[in-house]
Design a protein around this nucleic acid. Structure first.
Length: 508
RNA sequence: GGGCGUAUAGCUCAAUGGUAGAGCAGUGGCCUUUUAAGCCAUUUGUUCUGGGUUCGAGCCCCAGUACGCUCACCA
């Protein structure tokens, strides 16, 4: 291991401790309470006016240090909170010098003593003995912090995003607001599970490694099983497996897990992302819409304690019903184009060009409509909005509307202009499904990597009969972005994908 | 993949083409209720990498790498 000058000093301290027979990394600690428990116990006794001493052993990481001769102050922090240690030669004797010689900011320590209030009113541990629990060699990036009116103020911090993401451990130590994002994310996921469980959904797990990928339009990652001599794909969605379960009689299923899409990285795309999909027999997309409103509202209430939220400049209230916009009407209103009047790629492209809208050659009709949606509708969906009734060409797994076979019962949900979820009344007609798969094979160019191979086993499952059902998919990362007001997906993923660095540069 | 921007001490940042600096952290000293403690002293550099121009490059030029913003593609 290479050490810089600061680290060498600490490594020397470890060696000296070893010579003294004192472990820098002892095996066990013997705490009697967490920091939060110690503070609460003291406040409880204090409130009764009693001076009964609260004697505790606590542990945590040293986050600040002020040495003043025969007296020293240090704040230690564990997962529950932070407390000041009041270290005085009166109680510690020789141990104070030992502390000054060997303990640094960043070390994990265990302290025994009595909880008191110092003259300036801060709850502190009047420490009678202190022990090293784990020595830190590398200095923490944030050197100093103070708490002003209950708010932690950093005087230097870790802000370089590259270091923050590559060394998330350091980011988490010094930036408490980052820890809070991930606590909130965890609460969101728990709340979604609670909500679905309470509606009699069964949580299931389906294969990540798949011989045939499908259920979404995306390029897959390819991997290989050595012993079976078989190429496998990392799943791009759960859809085709979850619907097999409805054939099998599991009427309400959901899965929360990872999808992998081999595509561009952006502020709202990570190559692997967490998806929630559920399928519910005897639901249609209108029931799913209502259910979605309830579910997201529930998640916000449970995770944040409120439904009134702000994302950037956009304020929205998840307690209110979402706007509902019919796609054909929405596009007509914004562009003057009624796409139903242009049933072919050529006629629609011509109509768009006439309105001054550039179209890329080679795009099929469905993708042209998608372009109209993303250019003219999505940016206007700042308030929670369901856009519904998608053309059949871009919805190969959604059921056609009984009154209009060119339109499917599908919706997507948007907040703050960002797509959040996608749902439909599921296609359960195996003959139409096969025709749609074959049609997809025709409409996609030979070299279009979003072209999915036909999943014959899925068709076989449909032939046994699947109950009419509603299906739903939502990016958990994006929901977390919206609920925690983060402008990039990397802030809500603990270890976001970053490009590999050269060995040479990594060493620097 | 395209465009624009950034890269300097452990961290946050300065530095007209002319000796590479500050604050914090570190180290030594003073200091028994501090809390960005204070005071005195002091150390730390592949200026992202590789070329080039120049008497001389952190700075100018070329190429590369990573990150950020943005466009394209997608969820």
């Amino acid at each position: 291991m290479d050490f810089n000058e600061l680290e060498k000093v600490r490594v020397q301290k470890i060696q000296k401790l070893k010579e003294l027979g004192i472990p820098a990394y002892p095996t066990r600690s013997y705490i009697s309470s967490t920091i939060k428990e110690a503070c609460e116990a003291f406040e409880k006794v204090e409130a009764t006016g009693s001076d009964q001493p609260i004697e505790v052993t606590i542990a945590g990481r040293m986050r600040s240090l002020r040495i003043m001769g025969k007296l020293a102050f240090t704040h230690i922090e564990d997962g529950t909170g932070r407390i000041q240690l009041f270290l005085r030669v009166n109680e510690l004797g020789d141990q104070l010098q030992f502390f000054k010689d060997y303990f640094d900011i960043g070390d994990f320590v265990e302290a025994h003593g009595t909880v008191i209030r110092t003259r300036s009113g801060e709850i502190s541990l009047q420490t009678t003995s202190i022990r090293m629990l784990a020595k830190a060699i590398s200095p923490l990036p944030a050197a100093k912090e103070e708490v002003v009116d209950g708010v932690t103020v950093k005087h230097t911090g870790l802000s370089d995003p590259e270091i923050r993401y590559r060394q998330r451990y350091a980011d988490l130590v010094v930036n408490p607001e980052v820890r809070n994002i991930f606590r909130t994310r965890s609460k969101i996921v728990s709340a979604l599970r609670e909500f679905l469980d309470s509606h009699d959904f069964l949580e299931v797990e389906t294969p990540v490694l798949q011989p045939i990928y499908g259920g979404a339009a995306a390029r897959p990652f390819i991997t290989h099983h050595n012993q079976l001599h078989q190429d496998l794909y990392l799943r791009i969605s759960f859809e085709l497996y979850l619907k097999r379960l409805l054939v099998g009689g599991l009427d309400r299923v959901y899965e929360i897990g990872r999808d992998f899409r081999n595509e561009g990285v952006s502020y709202k795309h990570n190559p692997e992302f967490t998806q929630l999909e559920f399928y519910c027999a005897y639901f249609d997309y209108l029931k799913v819409m209502d259910f979605t409103e309830q579910m997201i509202r529930y998640a916000a209430e449970k995770a944040l304690g409120t439904t009134k939220l702000k994302y950037g400049d956009v304020e929205f209230d998840l307690a209110k019903p979402w706007n509902r916009v019919n796609m054909r009407e929405g596009i007509l209103e914004k562009t003057g184009i009624d796409f139903e009047k242009y049933p072919t790629t050529e006629s629609l492209a011509a109509a768009m060009n006439e309105k001054g809208i550039q179209t890329k050659p080679g795009l099929q009709r469905g993708k042209l409509i998608n372009q109209l949606v993303s250019d003219f509708l999505e940016p206007t969906f700042l308030q929670p909005t369901f856009l519904y009734d998608y053309p059949w060409e871009v919805s190969p797994l959604a059921k056609r509307k009984p009154e209009n076979p060119l339109i499917t019962e599908r919706f997507e949900g948007f907040i703050a202009g960002m797509e959040l979820c996608n749902a439909f009344t599921e296609l359960n007609d195996p003959i139409d499904q096969e025709a749609r798969f074959l049609e997809m094979g025709r409409t996609y160019a030979e070299d279009d990597e979003e072209r999915n191979p036909i999943d014959e086993d899925y068709l076989r499952a449909m032939r046994y009969g699947m109950p009419p059902c509603g299906g739903f998919g939502m990016g958990i990362d994006r929901l977390t972005m919206l609920l925690t007001n983060q402008s990039t997906i990397r802030e809500v993923i603990l270890f976001p994908h970053l490009r590999e660095r050269d060995k040479d540069q990594e060493d620097n």
